Amino acid sequence: MPIHFKALPTEPVRALQRGGPDAYGYMPELKVSDGDGVPCRHCLKNIAAGQGYLVLAYRPFPKLQPYAETGPIFLHAEECERATEDEALPEILESPDYIVRGYDRGDRIVYGSGGVIPTGTIAERTETLFGRGDIAYVHVRSARNNCYQCRIDRA
C-alpha cells in the first residue's frame, strides 16, 4: 500500500513565518540554528547552521479535544518550499527511532496503535496500521520528546 509523508500545510506556516501567533496565541521565538537537529516541519529538511528558525507551539489537529496534543516544533524563519508528498523517508527523520501512532477519523488516538519504531521500518509499520479499519492517518513523533515530526496518509 503506497503511503505519503506529509509536511505542514503552507498557509498556516506562512502565517507563522510572517509573525502570526502559535497554537497558544504567542509569537514564535526567533533563534539561529547551530546546524544540529533543527528540523523544519514544512520543508522536512534540517535548518542549516546560521539560518534563522522559529520555535513555536503547534497543534496538528483541526480542533481542540482531549487527544489534540500541542507541542514545540521548528520552522525556517524565512519562507521555504513545502516538501512534496511522497513515500520517501523525509530528511528530518534521522534519529534511530520514532513514535509511530495511529489516529481515527475523529482525530483520536487509536489505542494499541502506537509504539517506538526503528526509523528504517516506519513505512512498514504504517502499512500494517493502515491494514486496520480504524486508522485514518498516522503521526511520526520524536521518541525522546514526543515532538510532532510529520503525518503519514494513504497515497
Rank of each mutant, 00 (worst) to 15 (best):
G133Q: 00
G50Q: 02
A49T: 08
C40Y: 09
Y148V: 00
N145G: 03
V116N: 07
S33N: 06
C150R: 03
Y24D: 11
T128D: 15
E81T: 15
L16E: 07
R151V: 14
E85W: 13
I109M: 11
C150P: 05
P12R: 00
G35F: 00
H42I: 03
R41A: 04
R18K: 11
L56H: 01
R18G: 14
I117C: 09
L30P: 08
E78W: 02
P118E: 02
D97K: 00
H42K: 04
A143P: 02
V38L: 02
G106K: 00
I122V: 06
Q51C: 12
Y26H: 13
L64E: 13
G52F: 01
G19F: 00
E87D: 15
K45V: 01
I109V: 15
A68R: 04
T70N: 11
P96S: 13
K45S: 10
Y24W: 03
V138Q: 06
L54C: 02
K63F: 09
E81G: 12
L16M: 08
Y26R: 11
E94Q: 08
Y26V: 10
A83S: 04
E11M: 09
G71F: 06
V13M: 13
R132V: 07
I109L: 15
R105C: 10
P21N: 10
I117F: 08
G37E: 11
E69K: 13
L54I: 03
Y111I: 11
E69C: 12
P21Q: 05
T126N: 06
R144A: 15
G115W: 04
Q51G: 09
E124M: 13
D104Y: 05
G52C: 07
L129W: 10
L30Y: 08
E78G: 13
Q65G: 11
V13H: 10
L64Y: 10
A49M: 12
K63M: 10
T84I: 14
G115S: 03
R18Q: 13
E124N: 14
Y58A: 02
Y103M: 04
P12D: 07
L64V: 12
V38I: 12
P12W: 10
T128W: 15
A23D: 08
L44T: 05
V38Q: 06
H42C: 10
P72T: 13
G133T: 02
G35E: 05
R59L: 04
A48C: 10
I73G: 06
E85K: 00
T84Q: 15
T126S: 15
R41Q: 05
A57L: 12
D107R: 00
P21A: 11
H139D: 07
N46C: 07
T128C: 12
T84F: 12
A136N: 03
L89P: 06
N146G: 09
L44I: 02
T128L: 15
C147N: 09
T84E: 15
D97Y: 08
A15K: 03
Y111A: 15
